[in-house]
Amino acid sequence: MMTEPSPVSLLRPVRSGNAFEETVERLLQAIKLGVVAHGAKMPPERELAAQLGISRVTLREAIRALQESGYLDVRRGRYGGAFVVYRPPDPRHGDLRRAVNEMGPSELDDALTFRMAVECGAAQVLADRDLTPAQSATLRRRLADVNDAGPSDYRRLDTAFHLCIAELTGSPLLAAACADARLRVTDLLNAIPILSFNIQHSAAQHAAIVDAILDGDPALARQAVAEHLEGTAALLRGFLA
């Protein structure tokens, strides 16, 4: 049975052997992907510790490390909590090239291949399911959110749209794989300026993806995602040329 995605559905349980390190990794993933947006508060400590399957002591240590690294601001009192203060940097000339050099050309190709495989698969799976009215409404809302986004929020809401497709399949493993695939290219996407024509083109492609899913056409949903991701890969390569 498929479930409505929660804001932190990507924060799956960590392994006990490396609890601190993996907790930091999970929280950073949610922050960098914008699952918890700039200025928003992380879930309550008790809820977050239970979701991650860790002690509250381990969680506090991880939050402290992220506070010291400039990702979180911990406030005390009745309206306190851990608030996200991280913002992706504005793209600068040379950022994309530096990010690719850090990855290596072969790792870039592998990341794009991985993303193609898991996101196309997620759309195909979802299109083959009977969505509830609430799930269909969630998908449409994510589409409307990214269509209405301003430049400063576009990447975050674009990410939310893409991850929503995997989350709606009800498969935690697939949602985690899609989040991992997106995270691998996040620094690259953040290094590309927001181009109005590209946003318009992406909006049409996003709409085609949603239409195919809601029409229950797995093959067309897979094709629509593939065309969209091929366009993103072409844009990346264009800026690297």
Rank of each mutant, 00 (worst) to 15 (best):
M1H: 06
E4S: 09
S6V: 09
S6G: 13
L11G: 02
R12Y: 05
V14G: 05
V14P: 01
S16L: 15
N18E: 12
N18H: 14
A19H: 08
E22I: 01
V24S: 02
E25P: 02
L28T: 05
L28H: 06
Q29D: 05
A37L: 06
P43L: 00
L48H: 12
Q51S: 07
Q51L: 06
Q67T: 14
S69D: 12
G77H: 04
R78K: 14
A82F: 04
V85A: 00
R87V: 08
D90S: 13
P91N: 07
H93N: 06
G94K: 07
A99V: 10
N101H: 09
N101E: 09
M103K: 12
G104M: 08
L108T: 05
A111C: 04
M116Q: 11
A117R: 12
R129F: 09
P133M: 14
A134M: 07
Q135N: 11
S136H: 07
T138I: 13
L139R: 01
R141A: 13
D145F: 01
V146A: 01
D153T: 11
A160R: 08
C164R: 00
L168W: 11
P172Y: 15
L174E: 10
A175H: 02
A175Q: 04
A179C: 13
V185Q: 03
D187F: 05
D187H: 10
N190H: 12
N190T: 05
S196D: 13
F197T: 13
N198E: 14
Q200R: 15
A203N: 11
A204I: 08
I209D: 04
V210S: 05
D211T: 14
P218I: 11
A221H: 01
A221G: 01
R222C: 05
E227W: 14
H228L: 00
A234H: 06
A234C: 04
L236D: 05
R237C: 01
A241G: 07
